[in-house]
């Protein structure tokens, strides 16, 4: 059915028309560039012919109804879907011009450069300190204990958690509250000094206050990192992002400045979604 539609040239932007992405999906000097990406799980196709650029030091929000493929898309960016046995990715995905799916690209190195924060806070069964020190340790980033201490402290500071936990760095990470745990996971990701941070609905399991703190944090992090965030909350997308991409059933429907998307969506489906007609 999908192929039939794509062959129908020049049709108007209407419902269920996935022919081409509307809006400014391509930009200059992108950090990550995706061109014509298809993602399959076995026989099932999850992402269809998607092209999108992610700009440096800005936050891009990926929105859309659940099951639209936004999380899948996010996981293709640091090859987290390698762990799924029958997942296939085609098309070109580059990080600073380097092919992410090239044989020479090492997934370990890639993930050190493109970090990830998950939906549910998942601190390791270790102390707060060891949680943050985990990444630097495995990658050998610190030459001395003092250096490691410094990395841990700055990361916790950047994640806005240091003041709350400075007296109990040896306490287990799981002893923190949900919001604190998620900030710990962000600190853990920052400690490796990635270039890009992918966030998969980082606030969906948190209460409103913790969510507000995380959102503030994301805004601050933009200075040093490129951030892609998947969210099901349009308010959150509006608050934290500069650009927004709308996915529907595996298709990238519309991309644009966040303010523009929320005030003046050009695709019928985007409008339906943000006005709450479905989702």
């Amino acid at each position: 059915m999908q192929q039939g539609l794509t062959s129908e040239a020049g049709s108007v932007a209407g419902l269920n028309n996935f022919e081409a992405t509307i809006g400014e999906n391509l930009i200059d000097d992108a950090k990550i560039s995706v061109r014509h990406a298809d993602v399959f799980y076995g026989e099932k196709q999850a992402i269809f012919d998607t092209s999108l650029d992610i700009g440096r030091n800005q936050v891009i929000a990926l929105i859309g109804p659940s099951g639209c493929g936004k999380s899948t898309f996010l996981r293709t960016l640091n090859r987290m879907n390698d762990t799924i046995a029958d997942c296939r990715v085609s098309g070109s995905l580059t990080l600073d011009g380097e092919d992410i799916y090239d044989k020479k690209m090492d997934p370990v190195l890639l993930r050190a450069r493109v970090g990830m924060v998950f939906q549910k806070p998942n601190p390791f069964p270790k102390s707060i300190y060891d949680n943050v020190a985990y990444g630097p340790r495995i990658h050998g980033l610190a030459r001395s204990n003092a250096e490691l201490d410094e990395i841990v402290i700055t990361s916790l500071e950047k994640a806005g958690l240091f003041e709350e936990v400075k007296d109990r760095l040896t306490a287990p990470g799981t002893s923190l509250s949900g919001g604190q745990q998620q900030r710990l996971c962000i600190a853990r990701t920052i400690a490796v000094s990635p270039e890009v941070i992918l966030m998969d609905e980082p606030a969906s399991a948190l209460d409103p206050i913790a969510t507000a703190i995380i959102e503030e944090l994301i805004d601050e992090l933009r200075e040093n990192f490129t951030i892609a965030i998947v969210t099901h909350s349009m308010q959150q997308a509006a608050r934290v992002s500069q650009r927004t991409a709308y996915f529907h059933l595996g298709h990238l429907v519309e991309v644009g400045e966040t303010s523009r998307i929320f005030t003046n969506p050009r695709h019928q489906m985007t409008e339906n979604y943000i006005t709450g007609k479905f989702g």
Binding site: G115, F118, K120, F124, P125, Y134, T189
Partner: peptide, 24 residues
């Protein structure tokens, strides 16, 4: 999720198993 957290930081599988899965 525990494994994903570790792999997402760039740990190899054996590092993930030895330092995250087994302690858990």
């Amino acid at each position: 999720a525990m494994r994903d957290g570790s792999l997402g930081l760039g740990a190899t599988r054996s590092e993930t198993i030895k330092q995250v899965v087994i302690p858990a």
